[in-house]
Structure formats: C-alpha cells, structure tokens
C-alpha cells in the first residue's frame, strides 16, 4: 500500500508556500466576455483542475452545483475563507447530505488555496465557466511545493 508521506505539519508548510503563489487574476470584465478575459494565474488554473478532480463530482462543473451538493458559486457569496477552510478540512454531515472531511487528503489540501481562489473568482463573476483560457506554464516554485506536499 502506498502511504501518505507527509503529516499535517508538512501539509501546513507546503500550504504556506503555496499561499505565497496564490492569487488569481482579478478582472472586472463580465463573465459574458470570455474571449477577452485576461490570462489566468497558474494558481487559478490549478484550482480549476483540482476542483474538477475532487469536488465537481458533487458540486457540479464550474462550481455550479449538482443534484447532491450546493453551488459553490452561490455559497462563496455567503461564507468567508475561514468557514470554507473549516468545511473542507472537517467536513459536515446531516441526514441526506454529507460533506467529507478532506483534512488528510493531499489531493485537496495541497491545492486548497488554489481551489478557494478559483471558486472565489467564479463566485465574484471574475471567471467564466469552462477551462480557464491560456493557462501559463507551471512555475518552478509551485512544482517544487507540489512535489513536496503530494509526495508522488
């Protein structure tokens, strides 16, 4: 069995590192003009990718919501980053719906800032639906932090 290399401390360290590279392109362009959208940052692109790898199964493509879980485009209008982090790390449960805890999952935690940034951009109307256009090449510091955090 493959074991997770990093403990929480390592995750936390990597997260701090990732946080430094986080931040998404804030454009005031309305979502209706995707062709003219400014190129996204790697972090936003990474957030798009990881969101669709780990979250979209329930929360739907582009954060739009699915039949199992709410639209995060809407939710992020109501909750702040702390509450977002708390929910992702610890999960929550009720009778019909359940959000798993991702606190020990590097596939989510190594990219949590990216995912938040991506969703916030979607929520703010700064980013249209779909794969962000013209993503940059993966920056070296990001690749190094990713390798350390993921352990693969």
């Amino acid at each position: 069995m493959i074991k997770m290399k990093s403990g929480r401390r390592m995750l936390a360290a990597a997260l701090t590192c990732l946080a430094a590279t986080a931040g998404y392109s804030q454009t005031t362009e309305p979502a209706a003009a995707p062709a003219a959208a400014a190129p996204v940052s790697w972090s936003t692109f990474s957030g798009w990718k990881r969101y669709h790898g780990n979250c979209a199964t329930c929360h739907g493509p582009d954060g739009m919501g699915g039949t199992f879980a709410p639209s995060l485009v809407n939710s992020l209008k109501a909750i702040d980053q702390d509450k977002f982090m708390d929910t992702v790390v610890n999960g929550k449960a009720n009778a019909q719906l359940a959000m798993p805890s991702f606190g020990a999952d590097p596939n989510v935690m190594c990219y949590i800032e990216d995912i938040y940034g991506y969703l916030k951009a979607r929520s703010d109307g700064a980013l249209p639906r779909g794969r962000p256009a013209n993503p940059p090449a993966k920056p070296k510091d990001f690749a190094d932090a990713e390798a350390a955090c993921m352990g693969v």
């Binding site: 997770m4 990881r50 780990n54 020990a104 590097p106 596939n107 779909g130 794969r131 993921m150 693969v152």
Partner: peptide
C-alpha cells in the same frame, strides 16, 4: 476533454487523478 493529473493514494479518499469536461 480528459486531463490526467498526479494523484496520491489515501485510503478512503477519491483516487481519480483526471479532470473532465463533457
């Protein structure tokens, strides 16, 4: 569109490693 990404195995967590647009 199918975009494979690196994924780490964690027991009980999704082990997918791909982003899809349909």
């Amino acid at each position: 569109d199918y975009e494979p990404t690196k994924v780490a195995y964690v027991a009980g967590s999704p082990y997918v490693g791909a982003t899809l647009l349909m």
